[in-house]
């Protein structure tokens, strides 16, 4: 569904991604893990059209995304839940959600949008309770749900999630992961960027490990979870355990 070949890009003269390749098949959850500054968010920005300059090839459903603006990419069915949520604090919860349906409302699909709204409320009941409140007063977890709900309102076929669980309490992290699993069962495809490698790989079908702009590992998520390198670098196991384990 999504194919990235030899993607290079960055900010100004600084190149962050040095030729990255990745693919996501329909119905998969693919986790992209890596440390801070590895280029994970930059990759998502390139796919969603928010990175002005990049080279290489990005294909969605076989269509090249090079040169396309964010609204066109949204219209193709790629939804982005940006890092740091990027909700609109003074606007009410329901206005934030409706904003996600901007392109669909322009086509006059009012009925479809209202149905979608009900679906989002069903997924995240707390948003229904707080629909009239300004989004800025929601808690961090609720804001994350709102950001996801807003992206779902674009009716995506593929969702790009940028660190959806950063800074959330463990219970909420689990909740977010449950919802991703549920949406996958409803045939949504995910590219999930996470620093929480353990949780992301436990949920994902396949995984990629990005290190300073290069893909260093890829494979089935379960195998990556067992991989010594990944464990040492990203799963926060004690270094000693490995050294002694190897001896």
């Amino acid at each position: 569904m999504l194919t990235i070949r030899n993607l290079r890009g960055g900010y100004g003269r600084i190149e962050v991604l040095h030729g990255v390749s990745l693919s996501v098949r329909r119905g998969e959850v693919v986790a992209l893990v890596g440390a801070n500054g590895a280029g994970k968010s930059t990759l998502l920005k390139a796919v969603s059209g928010l990175l002005p300059q990049w080279t290489g090839e990005v294909l969605f459903d076989g269509r090249p995304l090079q040169g396309k603006k964010p609204p066109e990419i949204v219209a193709l069915g790629v939804g982005l839940v940006p890092e740091g949520r990027w909700i609109f604090p003074p606007m009410s919860v329901v206005d934030n959600l409706r904003l996600g349906a901007y392109l669909r409302l322009r086509r006059g699909d009012h009925k479809g949008v209202e149905e979608e709204l009900e679906r989002v409320y069903e997924l995240f009941p707390i948003l229904a309770e707080r629909r009239r409140q300004p989004a800025g007063i929601l808690s961090g977890g609720e804001q994350q749900m709102l950001a996801m709900g807003r992206a779902l309102m674009t009716r995506p076929r593929m969702l790009l999630l940028d660190e959806p669980t950063t800074g959330l309490a463990p219970l909420l992290v689990e909740k977010i992961f449950q919802i991703i699993a549920r949406l996958r069962d409803e045939s949504l495809t995910f590219l999930l960027v996470e620093q929480n490698a353990q949780g992301a790989l436990a949920l994902a079908d396949r995984g990629y490990v990005l290190e300073t702009g290069r893909m260093v590992l890829q494979g089935r998520a379960r195998e990556l979870l067992e991989d010594q390198e990944v464990k040492r670098a990203y799963l926060g196991r004690d270094y000693k355990e490995f050294v002694e384990g190897r001896v």
Binding site: S48, G49, L50, K69, P70, P71, V74, A75, L80, P82, W86, I87, F88, P89, P90, M91, L99, G100, Y102, L103, R150, A151, T154
Partner: peptide
């Protein structure tokens, strides 16, 4: 007015 990037991500030109 709030964030152009987020608005673009919602499909706003």
């Amino acid at each position: 007015g709030d964030s152009q990037g987020a608005a673009a991500a919602c499909g706003v030109d």
